[in-house]
Amino acid sequence: MPLGRGPQGPAPALQTALLNASSEENFRRTLVFHHVVKEAEAFAADLPDIAAQLHASDPVLYPKTIWADWLCGDHKPLQRRRLLGEFAAGIATDGTVVEKCFLCSVKVLGEGVRAPAVDVLAPVSYASARSGQVGED
Rank of each mutant, 00 (worst) to 15 (best):
Q8P: 05
G9M: 01
G9C: 02
G9F: 02
P10L: 14
P10W: 13
P10M: 09
P10C: 12
P12E: 05
A13Y: 15
L14I: 09
T16F: 07
L18C: 09
L19H: 01
N20D: 11
N20P: 04
S22P: 06
E24N: 08
F27Q: 00
R28W: 04
R28V: 04
T30N: 09
T30R: 02
T30H: 02
V32G: 04
V32A: 03
H34I: 02
H34P: 01
V36K: 09
K38A: 09
A40T: 00
E41I: 02
A42V: 15
A44F: 01
A45Q: 10
A45K: 09
D46G: 13
D46W: 11
P48V: 01
D49S: 13
A51K: 01
Q53Y: 09
L54P: 12
H55D: 03
A56P: 14
L61Y: 08
Y62D: 12
K64D: 11
K64H: 14
I66Q: 00
W67G: 05
A68G: 04
L71K: 02
H75Y: 15
K76C: 11
L78I: 12
Q79P: 05
R80M: 12
R81Y: 14
L84Y: 09
G90P: 11
G90R: 05
G90L: 11
A92F: 04
A92E: 08
T96N: 05
K100S: 08
F102L: 03
V106E: 01
K107D: 07
K107C: 02
V108S: 12
L109F: 05
L109A: 07
G110N: 05
E111H: 03
G112F: 01
A115Y: 03
A115N: 04
P116L: 14
A117C: 12
A117F: 13
D119S: 06
D119C: 03
D119V: 11
L121G: 15
L121K: 09
L121Q: 10
L121P: 06
P123C: 00
S125N: 05
